[in-house]
Structures are given as C-alpha cells and as structure tokens.
C-alpha cells in the first residue's frame, strides 16, 4: 500500500503512470483494469462510463473504456493488449463507484491479455510506484487527494 499526497496507490497493482491506469493479473490469467484514484480526482465526479464491448480487442495504450465528468469525455487506456472478456456493468449504472472505489467495485474491464509478460514490462509495480506517481503529481501541479 502506497499513499502519495493523500492518494491511495496500492503497490501490488501494475500501473501505466502516464495514462493513470492500473492493471491486476488475476489467478485465472485475466487482467482487470481501471482508473487510479488520482485519475478520478483529476476528472471529478464521473457521470458516465462506457466500456468496450466483450469480444473486442484492445491494443496496449488504446481506449478500453470512455468516461465523462464535468462534460469532459476521455479514454481509459488499456495498460496491456488483449481481448475484452468481461465488463463491469455496475460502473455503467453507478459511474460514481469509479470515484469512491477505483481499485475494487470501480473496475472497468477484464482482458484476456495477448502478451502479459511483454506488455507488463512497460508497467511499474511495487516499490517504484510511489515515486513515479509523486513525480507525475508534481508535474501536473496536483495538490493532493481530498
């Protein structure tokens, strides 16, 4: 568990810091992905979320879901390539869950990864997480999670 400027960034997840997204390798080999608590704080209250449909392929760093907050629409970029095998219907009906529980019930998409070992090499995890997010927050001029 890492806390950076008041934001909870669990260090057992894999991150693309630039895209502000996380990935978790599940026991069945699938990869669950979502937004970080920091991304949700920058966005503000999320009012809509549309994940890509099951069966679609998503390339690494391409949109796996689209979210809207405060009239801004933007992509949530997949940390790894893969095929969408499940989407979280609960975030479609309760998009605010992404703000309140981004690593739990606010997950967005599960992928069957195309090449986890290769793609995840570009992600950071463990001890390097806190410093990487602190650097990003400083660049972004972010004061901290409320």
């Amino acid at each position: 568990m890492a806390t950076v400027k008041g934001c909870n960034i669990p260090d057992d997840l894999y991150y693309n810091v630039e895209n502000n997204v996380w990935a978790r390798r599940e026991d069945d080999g699938t990869v669950t992905i979502g937004m970080t608590v920091y991304a949700a704080a920058l966005a503000g209250q999320i009012v809509s979320c549309t994940p890509k449909k099951v069966g679609r392929s998503v390339e690494q760093n391409k949109s796996a879901a689209t979210v809207e907050s405060g009239k801004w629409v933007g992509p949530v970029k997949a940390p790894v390539s893969g095929e969408v095998v499940a989407i979280n219907e609960a975030v479609t009906s309760s998009p605010g869950t992404i703000n309140t529980d981004p690593y739990g019930s606010g997950w967005m998409v599960k992928l069957k990864p195309a090449n986890w070992d290769g793609d995840s090499a570009a992600l950071i995890t463990g001890g390097a997480v806190a410093a990487a997010f602190e650097a990003k927050m400083n660049t972004d001029g972010f004061a901290g999670c409320a």
Partner: peptide
C-alpha cells in the same frame, strides 16, 4: 493550461 484538473481548465 498548466493544470490537469479538468474543472480548472473549463
């Protein structure tokens, strides 16, 4: 825009 906070940008 010097910030990543979407509301501030708007």
């Amino acid at each position: 825009v010097g910030t990543s906070d979407m509301q501030s940008i708007s």
